[in-house]
């Protein structure tokens, strides 16, 4: 077992993990954070996206010990019913949510994009969302939602 310490959704967190444990499993099975989803287990679908030190990654391809000392944001750390993040608000308003399985990953990719680039163009939005597969929406409303969130951010 390896002791790791990291900041998870702005709260310090310490636990012992196996060397070969995936971050995804630690989040879901040890910490009960079920918002991070597993869709493929090979870094293809993006449903397990989390933000580590300001970068989106697929948590199914990260070993838990790798995040020692890191800042991690999962969907549970982004907004809530009292104060939804502008991206979450836009997703609901635009109708970008269907089955919802890809949604947490999508929200994190969108949030991360807007954190870095508050006024992205269409191409930048498309690229930023291209690591998150969705089978329901055809991406149309999702891309519109990201755009709306960016516009709301302007004001």
């Amino acid at each position: 077992m390896i002791e790791i310490k990291f900041v998870l959704n702005n709260k310090p967190c310490a636990l012992n993990v196996e060397a070969n444990e995936r971050l995804l499993d630690v989040l879901r099975n040890r910490l009960g954070l079920m918002g991070t989803k597993e869709g493929c287990g090979e870094g293809e679908c993006g449903a397990c996206t989390v933000i580590i030190d300001g970068k989106t990654v697929n948590s199914c391809l990260v070993l838990a010990p790798q995040v020692d000392g890191c800042q991690i944001t999962t969907i549970e750390g982004v907004g809530n019913r009292q104060s939804p993040h502008p991206v979450q608000k836009a997703f609901v308003q635009v109708g970008a949510v269907q089955c919802g399985f890809c949604t947490p990953g999508m929200v994190l990719s969108a949030k991360n994009l807007l954190d870095k680039n508050p006024q992205p163009n269409d191409k930048e939005i498309g690229v930023a969302m291209s690591g998150n597969l969705c089978r329901c929406t055809g991406y149309d409303k999702i891309l519109r939602a990201v755009k709306l969130a960016a516009e709301e951010g302007k004001g």
């Binding site: 869709g39 493929c40 090979e42 293809e44 679908c45 498309g126 690229v127 969302m129 291209s130 690591g131 998150n132 597969l133 969705c134 089978r135 055809g138 991406y139 149309d140 999702i142 891309l143």
Partner: peptide, 18 residues
């Protein structure tokens, strides 16, 4: 696998007017 059974990504779907 989703890496070999390929479905469209956000960049593969064009602007859709519905």
């Amino acid at each position: 696998a989703l890496s070999s059974y390929l479905i469209p990504t956000a960049l593969d779907v064009p602007n859709i007017e519905a």
